[in-house]
């Protein structure tokens, strides 16, 4: 059986990842690195499964998931509305574009304390910060997505008598899809990062809070299990959207 270049590449990549875990295991088991600081990979994985069975851990995951979801569901429509305004209105586009770009490019994390001062410590503060981390990138990408719609395509549709709503649903949406998918993917990265950071900074629950507590208490096995878990969730989501992006890659023109 011969493999295509792509299959071979993903095979090699998998091998690299497995090898890295193997190296980790080896370093720790042989004592080349202090196992108290770097517990063996197998231990971390075993701990991960054990943790997933615990109700406290499940509750933490649920908290994080709901914060991420709420922040995302708030940030996407608001950001999209701003982006639409920028792209569709000449005047407001010129007014808002530099402002949004500025807000988009300054570091958001340093504003975290403001959210605690405003909302106290809890759900609202974390959602608020997640929203704040996400909304500007959504606005920027939506504007870019709208601008990726080719005027020619709109003219063609009009020449066939398409109505306004048909132009939106049959030209704008599919034209914007590739850019939009990428935007959603990156927005989710920002959103997830924002919520995790907010949880690590000041929180009583959530997976980010759990991770920082394990770190402070030198519970290295739990800590590494948590790191693997968060990384896995992020990578799986990212790959799923990337897969969809690849499917409509050729729509880009």
């Amino acid at each position: 059986m011969t493999l295509s270049e792509r299959q071979r590449a993903s095979l090699v990549r998998t091998a690299i990842v497995v090898a890295l875990f193997g190296l980790w295991e080896l370093l720790s088991r042989t004592g080349a690195v202090n196992p108290r600081l770097l517990p063996p990979a197998s231990d971390a994985l075993a701990t991960l499964f054990e943790l997933l069975g615990r109700p406290k851990m499940r509750a933490d995951l649920m908290v994080t998931a709901s914060e991420v979801a709420v922040a995302f569901l708030l940030a996407v429509p608001v950001g999209a509305a701003i982006g639409l305004l920028i792209a569709e209105s000449r005047y407001w586009g010129e007014v808002l574009r530099p402002l949004v770009f500025f807000l988009f490019s300054i570091p958001k994390s340093i504003f975290l304390p403001m959210f605690i001062l405003a909302f106290g410590i809890g759900f609202a503060q974390k959602v608020g910060f997640g929203f704040f981390s996400t909304v500007f990138i959504v606005a920027m990408s939506t504007a870019a997505a709208v601008e990726s719609v080719k005027p020619d395509h709109v003219t063609v549709a009009r020449s066939f008598g398409a109505t306004r709503s048909q132009i939106v649903s049959r030209i704008y949406l599919p034209s914007m899809m590739p850019v939009l998918l990428e935007a959603l993917r990156i927005a989710m990265i920002f959103n997830f990062t924002g919520v995790i950071l907010a949880e690590m900074y000041a929180s009583r629950d959530g997976i980010g809070h759990a991770i920082s507590t394990w770190g402070e208490n030198f519970q290295m096995r739990q800590l590494f299990a948590g790191v693997i878990l968060v990384a896995l969730i992020a990578i799986l989501f990212n790959e799923a959207v990337r897969w969809a992006e690849r499917r409509c890659e050729h729509w880009r023109t």
Partner: peptide, 24 residues
């Protein structure tokens, strides 16, 4: 071509979770 996809997957991970490891 081989490694870049790995790195861009890694880009999705909120790296801040590594900070407790480094303080430890």
């Amino acid at each position: 071509r081989l490694l870049l996809p790995l790195f861009s997957s890694l880009y999705a991970v909120p790296l801040v979770i590594l900070y407790p490891v480094f303080t430890a």
